[in-house]
């Protein structure tokens, strides 16, 4: 059923499409994050903006991707921008919600302590709230990367210059091997990105690893100096 010979003959093309897939997704993920970060910080400062921002981003997210790619053609022509605009727009709702939730997840007493010790608002954001928002921000990055990698395949509708691994899905809809290469490749890429970002989060948040066994020993021993003072 699978034409292994075809795969063997086209390894170069598959590799090229894989790189294109990664490139298209990475640009969207990076640009989308930059825009969302600005929108999220603004939403945290100006709270009434938050439902408006997420409302608009949510509506954008509901537009079928196939339709959006095609709808942009009369405006932008057929080029990388036509691919990236929808991809970026679809990341917004995921990113903004996760960044804002991340900042909101910082415990109130931590914020109060920071204020009481004389952090400026900017220092507090940079040194306290954003570092503590990292786990939820990366959760957003994981979701957005899976979603974006899937959507890149659909950009194949714009022609042979685009689509990443999706190119193989669109090229010959009757040839099972090619469709499988496109689909399985895209899925594998999405899973790899997800696992990669999960590993990144563990690296960036060493404080989340609790030293449980140590805590018991610590509280027991530290009792001694205190008791002698009573």
């Amino acid at each position: 059923m699978i034409d292994w010979a075809w795969i063997g003959d086209h390894l170069g093309a598959i590799g090229g499409r894989l790189l294109q897939h990664i490139e298209l997704a990475a640009i969207a993920l990076a640009v989308g994050f930059a825009i969302s970060f600005g929108l999220a910080i603004y939403s945290v400062r100006v709270r009434r903006a938050y439902p408006i921002v997420t409302g608009i981003a949510g509506v954008l997210f509901t537009i079928p991707s196939l339709a959006l790619f095609s709808a942009l053609v009369p405006v932008t022509g057929i080029n990388t921008l036509t691919v990236e605009i929808p991809l970026v727009l679809y990341t917004l709702v995921i990113y903004v919600r996760n960044i804002v939730s991340g900042i909101d997840s910082v415990p109130a007493e931590v914020v109060e302590a920071a204020d009481g010790m004389g952090y400026t608002q900017w220092d507090r954001l940079r040194r306290v709230e954003l570092p503590l928002a990292v786990p939820l921000m990366i959760a957003g990055l994981r979701l957005a990367s899976v979603s974006t990698i899937g959507l890149v395949t659909i950009s194949g509708v714009l022609g042979q210059a685009f689509g990443g691994l999706g190119f193989f899905i669109f090229e010959r809809p009757t040839f099972a091997t090619e469709i499988l290469v496109g689909a399985v490749g895209s899925i594998t890429l999405a899973l790899t990105a997800d696992l990669g970002f999960a590993a990144l989060q563990r690296r960036l948040t060493p404080w989340n690893r609790r030293e449980v066994g140590d805590e018991i020993a610590t509280s027991g021993r530290s009792a001694a100096p205190g008791l002698t003072g009573m």
């Binding site: 415990p107 007493e109 931590v110 302590a113 009481g116 004389g118 306290v128 503590l132 404080w207």
Partner: peptide
């Protein structure tokens, strides 16, 4: 605020 020590019930250490 930087010149006044501040301690609260929940401590508020930076995790």
């Amino acid at each position: 605020r930087r010149s006044i020590g501040y301690v609260i019930q929940q401590v508020g250490l930076f995790p």
